[in-house]
Structures are given as structure tokens and as C-alpha cells.
């Protein structure tokens, strides 16, 4: 562990001085595209080291989302109360955008249920709910999920019956991975979220 981290920092120091390292050196060869060389903004979530796997079974890091605005929510597949509503709300936020902008943002859903929502289970979930192909469904280690939740301010807890209690939060990320808006709760706030997303789309990466 220590050795690997040391390598990370040496490589990072060489490549990215003085910014914090974006990627683990050990992973850098295996993922495309490589993150752009420009340093990330200080508040970018894409500095996180969390590791995820897509429902297609591919490794995934949040930094791969850099470049397009993101609508991000955490969920679990067997949720029968809030998560289906949240998915519907994300679709409605998208519909509130001008037609030409609707495909500019990516939708990312990350599961709390690291035991049951395996990549294969997420694949089934995508098919059963007929979710659009460009939505990113992610499974991660318990460690990674907790780190992402902490970054987003999402509280979650597994309950006695295996269900999860969790915050209902939809987060809009800028092209650089900064939180630009959060919609809390299950009612209202769609117009504000859409406005924030439209603003995020309207900004070209790296050109304020």
C-alpha cells in the first residue's frame, strides 16, 4: 500500500506539479481517456480516488466524467419509495432543457447497495427500467461509495431489513466536477435544477 502511494506521488509530482494527483499511477495505463492535463478546480469531485465499476463490468473513475456536466444521484435498485421518483425527476429535469441541450449532460447513478447491486444486477436494472444507454450506472467498494456520499453530503444507512435509509439529493456537477446545485427532497425544485444544469451546459470547459 505504502509503496504504491509513494509511486503515485512521485509520478504525480512529475506530471502535475503543483496540483494534487488526479489518477493513480497504477491505473493510468488502463483507462481511456486520460484526464486532461489542466489542473482540476479546487472544488472538483474528480480529485476523489474512489473506484467504481460500470454495469458493463468496466472499471470507472469519476474523473472520466470530466468535460460534460453531470446529473448525479445515489440510489439502490430494490428501493421502492424514493429512487424511482428520483429517476423520473431526472428525466423531467432533462425535459425542461431546450431540445438542443438535452444530450449535453450525462446522468450518473451510483448504488448504495454494494452487496446486492453487482454490475450484473445493475445491468438487469437498466433493462427492466429501460434506462437510456448513455446513463452511467456504477457499483463501487463500500469504501468508495462512502467517500462519494461524503463528498455529496448524502447520508445513508443500511437498515435491519436490508433496505437503505438515505438522503434524497440530486446533484448537478459542472464540466469540471464542481457541485453547482443540489436539489434536496422529492417535491419541487425541478425548475431550479434545470436552470442550474442549463447554466452548467452553457459554460464551455475551461472557458469561464
Amino acid at each position: 500500500m505504502k509503496t504504491r502511494l509513494l509511486v503515485v506521488h512521485l509520478v504525480a509530482a512529475a506530471l502535475l506539479l503543483p496540483a494534487a494527483p488526479l489518477l493513480r499511477a497504477a491505473d493510468a495505463c488502463c483507462h481511456a481517456p486520460l484526464a486532461p492535463a489542466a489542473p482540476l478546480p479546487a472544488a472538483s469531485l474528480y480529485q476523489a480516488e474512489a473506484d467504481f465499476t460500470t454495469d458493463a463490468g468496466a472499471g470507472f473513475r469519476l474523473a472520466e466524467l470530466r468535460g460534460r456536466p453531470v446529473v448525479l444521484a445515489m440510489f439502490f435498485a430494490s428501493c421502492t419509495y424514493a429512487c424511482p421518483t428520483t429517476i423520473g425527476d431526472i428525466l423531467r429535469i432533462r425535459e425542461k432543457l431546450p431540445a438542443g441541450l438535452r444530450d449535453e449532460a450525462r446522468v450518473v447513478m451510483v448504488t448504495f447497495d454494494v452487496e446486492r447491486d453487482t454490475p450484473a444486477a445493475l445491468r438487469d436494472f437498466r433493462e427492466s427500467r429501460a434506462l437510456p444507454e448513455d446513463w452511467v450506472l456504477l457499483h463501487g467498494s463500500a469504501d468508495s461509495v462512502r467517500e462519494l456520499a461524503a463528498l455529496l453530503g448524502v447520508k445513508f444507512k443500511r437498515e435491519a431489513d436490508g433496505q437503505f435509509a438515505h438522503s434524497n439529493l440530486v446533484t448537478i456537477l459542472s464540466r469540471e466536477g464542481e457541485i453547482v446545485h443540489q436539489r434536496a427532497g422529492l417535491s419541487g425544485g425541478l425548475a431550479e435544477a434545470a436552470a442550474a444544469l442549463e447554466s452548467a451546459i452553457g459554460v464551455e470547459a475551461g472557458k469561464p
Partner: peptide
């Protein structure tokens, strides 16, 4: 309002 808020859910 859109500034990065590090929001903590509802008490946020």
C-alpha cells in the same frame, strides 16, 4: 446559490 456548497443534505 450555485456556488459549490458542499451541501449536507437537508440541514444543509
Amino acid at each position: 446559490a450555485a456556488a459549490p456548497a458542499f451541501a449536507e443534505g437537508p440541514s444543509a
